[in-house]
Amino acid sequence: MANDNAQSVTTSATVWNGLFKENPTFGLMLGMCPTLAVTTTMEAALTMGISVIFVLIGSNIMISVMRRQLKPHLRILMFTLTIAVFVTIADQFLKAYQPVMSEYLGAYIPLIIVNCIIICRSEACASKQGVWISTVDGLAMGVGFTVSLSLLASIREILASGKWLGMTVLPLAENGGWFVPWAGMGMPVGAFVTLGLLLGLAVHLTKKAKG
């Protein structure tokens, strides 16, 4: 992150950074709480991902616009307040149009405020770069986050219930199929262990690619 601002940042590099090189979950290891908590079903993960994309883009634009006025010691407070405003908008929107999902996600939507990715991007990117790069960075980071969430949620949902977004993938034993659901995948243990193994895989593949 430190060398981001050393050279001029191009749009394509920003996109590449957000999606792969500094993928929020697998590269930076940020925003773990929602990653672990909302990945029981694919639908919850997607709702969470889209809310995070919205908040990231919104707060990145706002902070980029006011970056010259920011005083260093009040910086973090201004970041969190800006983010809190956008999260309130997202929360009210979900309550109005997606009441079931809003109920299911409960406190995890307001907890986006303290999601480290958003503060990290405000600090590392939006407070230093122009509006366009900040917008692209917000979008790329958000999509990267959503993709990682969906990956984890797919694994957990399929193994816990044999379904994916309501479609049956693995026929359950009780309905005449062969698959016995793994109860552990729906519990906290499934979240931690699956993410641990996925991270291990990511590290392994990165090492292999580097030769």
Partner: peptide, 20 residues
């Protein structure tokens, strides 16, 4: 490949199992 964060996460998973 599991050193650092991955093994910590797996340990954390086993701990939650104990706390259940």
């Amino acid at each position: 490949c599991l050193q650092g964060a991955p093994i910590t996460l797996i340990t954390a998973g086993l701990l939650t199992l104990a706390f259940m």
